[in-house]
Design a protein around this nucleic acid. Sequence first.
DNA 1: CACGCTCCATACTCTAGAGTATGGAGATAT
DNA 2: ATATCTCCATACTCTAGAGTATGGAGCGTG
Lengths: 205, 205
Amino acid sequence: MARKGTGAKRLDEPTLTAADWAEAALHLIAEAGLGALTVEALAVRLGVTKGSFYWHFKGRSELLAAALGRWEQRATTEAIAGLSAVTDARQRLYLMLEAATKSPRSRSLYAALAEAAEDPIVRRVLNRVASARIKYLEACYRELGIEQPRAKAKAVFSYAAYRGLLQLAHEAPAVLPTDWSSYAAVVLEALGPVPRAKRRPGRQR
Amino acid sequence: MARKGTGAKRLDEPTLTAADWAEAALHLIAEAGLGALTVEALAVRLGVTKGSFYWHFKGRSELLAAALGRWEQRATTEAIAGLSAVTDARQRLYLMLEAATKSPRSRSLYAALAEAAEDPIVRRVLNRVASARIKYLEACYRELGIEQPRAKAKAVFSYAAYRGLLQLAHEAPAVLPTDWSSYAAVVLEALGPVPRAKRRPGRQR
DNA sequence: CACGCTCCATACTCTAGAGTATGGAGATAT
DNA sequence: ATATCTCCATACTCTAGAGTATGGAGCGTG
């Protein structure tokens, strides 16, 4: 995909493709924020000059759209497909909640993109990603027997808690929980599948 | 404060102060994001030219610091002081949770600032605000008899849920709950003071 | 009245970064 | 070999916005 011929222009590196630029853009955003996504900075990182960029893309916004398209794919369909491999809905929900009670990476791509929600391109992508994830959560809750008005509310609440923790890790890392085990206990107790089969001693509703 | 003399330079408007510029900056940020905070844009909004700005502030970052200082005051000490007027801790917690289950304004200042968390000035302020609020929440939970490792976890969880909902309102308004009453029910059930009273924990006394 | 202080206007400079124009080197096709 | 396509370098233009230099109008006080 990277080349069409057989030989290489240079012995070390094949020539770049639009996908290479988009991928590098995602890395740059995750590391330094979307404000740092500069055509020239990207060119330097790829070892070329910015003149070559405009051969692959019409402009910066086209690059951004391509990069976000790739990220959206991974953040929704692929991630959900991976989770759906777990057949037991209860186990699935537990896995997601567990992931939401671990210390987030300090500089996630999601958090970096949230900084640029004023950008219409970014906002549309964030909207779709959040919608897809909440819909999936809602489906999980319904699969566990929770009825409709409540299932959606629980899904939104779960995702808001996850999203908020991610945001706090970005904008105020100092306030993150020090004791993650007790945080996980609180979250599972609040959002867990069904309070029926609680094997925690005492404390039963 | 706005004037030192008695007369006005113009009949309609007194001359501007640094506080006026800072206040206008906060409004501009809330409306159009921190990216739109431009010296010239502010000057236009205030009906003057940008030459006058540099009489009040050394530069843009000094203005930003002054504006954020004002906001921080309102977001922490003043808000907390208002809440502490409610003597009953249970009622206080209910008020806060209720505020966290109402549809947020689409363009809050907090959300606008979160977009610029890469800025060191903004990040420090966000950190302090979040810390103050979580500390207060933690104190409320402890006042209700919840012990320490759990009280902090509950406080962080509550604030993360609030913060996440605020963020979703900003970056993906389409996923907000349609039925706010059932959302409030879920949140209160999960974060409410004590699971002892199974009824809605608000109508006491 | 003369003088000084405060707030502001006018008119510049300077820089970052997007976008453009054009040519060139290597690979491939004919 | 010649033509052509692809990817890139060089070297420009153009704009937004920060920051600066300087003068001026109104109001105060000696």
